[in-house]
């Protein structure tokens, strides 16, 4: 290697041999934008919600298992760690839900103009934040 910039050129051919050649620009080259950041967050929140299904299944199985098992889940969800996880899952669900609507609109062919997808992106952020806070205010006020 004669130049540090060649570190960014280290790739592999399709049969796995190391090769030095210009690579297509990757994440570190681009300034974060609302479109790219929300796209990454959609995937991230989806994966995080996937782990949340473990809690959902535990909750349902405990509910079917009787009062003792259900009390254990409720005790966990009432602890600070359980509440923190629940809050993060609420936020992830509200975001994935709102941004999912945006994706469905795109799939239907609507909203591809630049001002529109910037505005819809910020609307998704506001809606997710608002819904998360709203659900927790209602939940805690009723509790």
């Amino acid at each position: 290697m004669r130049d540090v910039r060649e570190a960014l050129m280290a790739g592999r051919t399709s049969d796995g041999k190391p090769v030095l050649r210009p690579l297509s620009p990757h994440l570190q080259v681009y300034r974060p934008q609302i479109t790219s950041v929300l796209s990454i967050m959609h995937r991230g929140s989806g994966i995080w919600l996937g782990f949340g299904t473990i809690l959902l299944v535990w909750w349902l199985v405990a509910l079917a298992g009787g009062a003792g098992a259900f009390a254990a889940v409720q005790r966990f969800l009432g602890s600070w760690f359980g509440m923190l996880l629940l809050f993060l899952w609420t936020a992830a669900l509200m975001f994935h839900f709102s941004n999912g609507m945006r994706h469905l609109a795109w799939d239907a062919g609507a909203g591809f103009e630049k001002p529109t997808y910037h505005a819809s992106g910020w609307t998704v952020v506001a809606a997710a934040a608002l819904l998360t806070v709203l659900l927790w205010v209602i939940g805690l006020a009723l509790g």
Partner: peptide
């Protein structure tokens, strides 16, 4: 995704409505 839109709204609202319910009530 489309099916989950109404189903998740129903589920979240149901959970909120049953806050504080005991095991028997929830079951």
């Amino acid at each position: 995704a489309a099916a989950l839109v109404p189903l998740s709204v129903w589920f979240v609202i149901s959970l909120l409505a049953h806050r504080g319910a005991d095991a028997a009530g929830m079951a």
